[in-house]
């Protein structure tokens, strides 16, 4: 019916090498900024390189930053991650602030997250702690030895107390019991 599975792969949530369980490691390995020194489309990236790139590389010592000035070619960011993903992004005619935001996205991702649709938003190695459900989990164990049909298990047990029963209980309560008689004596 749908052909989305042909161009949009689906995957479960995964993190490479138990990242975060012990120590957390930034997943971005290297980032290459390719730009033109004179063309107008690279203005944003040139401003970024002049103003914010050094701070970026100082704050992320684990990321290798490459600069590739290329004439007559459009500006591009290529990020490579520790799990081998390669993300190619064109920054043609993007402003300095936009590029800063995209750099932040590339830095905090753990690979090409947008390449696949997530099937579920959770992943666990231990789906059951108290034991998986079986049909006997919340059943009365006496059913094992009962001969069915049995009115004990078949009759409705969630009915509210009827008026007659209520009156009878009130009567029982107000009766003078033997204890009261003895106290009276």
């Amino acid at each position: 019916m749908s052909n989305k599975n042909l161009f949009l792969k689906s995957a479960f949530v995964r993190a490479p090498l138990q990242n975060g369980v012990g120590r957390y490691v930034c997943q971005l390995q290297r980032i290459v900024l390719k730009f033109c020194k004179s063309h107008g489309a690279s203005r944003g990236i040139r401003d970024f390189i002049e103003q914010d790139l050094v701070d970026f590389s100082r704050q992320n010592p684990g990321v290798v930053v490459y600069l590739k000035p290329r004439r007559h070619r459009g500006p591009v960011l290529v990020a490579e991650y520790l799990n081998g993903d390669r993300v190619w992004m064109s920054v043609h005619n993007k402003t300095h602030s936009e590029i800063t935001k995209w750099m932040e996205v590339l830095r905090t991702q753990q690979g090409d997250v947008a390449g696949a649709r997530l099937k579920k938003y959770q992943y666990t190695d231990y789906p059951s702690v108290q034991g998986p459900w079986t049909p006997f989990t919340f059943k009365d164990p006496e059913l094992n030895v009962a001969t069915l049909p049995d009115p004990k298990f078949g009759a409705n047990n969630r009915l509210s107390v009827s008026a007659t029963e209520k009156l009878r209980l009130m009567f029982e309560k107000q009766k003078i019991s033997e204890k009261d008689m003895k106290i009276g004596e």
């Binding site: 049909p135 069915l148 298990f153 078949g154 009759a155 409705n156």
Partner: peptide, 28 residues
């Protein structure tokens, strides 16, 4: 093969002549 019983929804009232003699006498 039967292992479980589904509970009924409506009350099945007991017939007056099916109640024990002693219960009838004890009733206030």
């Amino acid at each position: 093969n039967v292992t479980n019983q589904i509970r009924q929804l409506r009350l099945v009232p007991t017939r007056l002549d099916h109640i024990d003699e002693e219960e009838v006498k004890k009733f206030p």
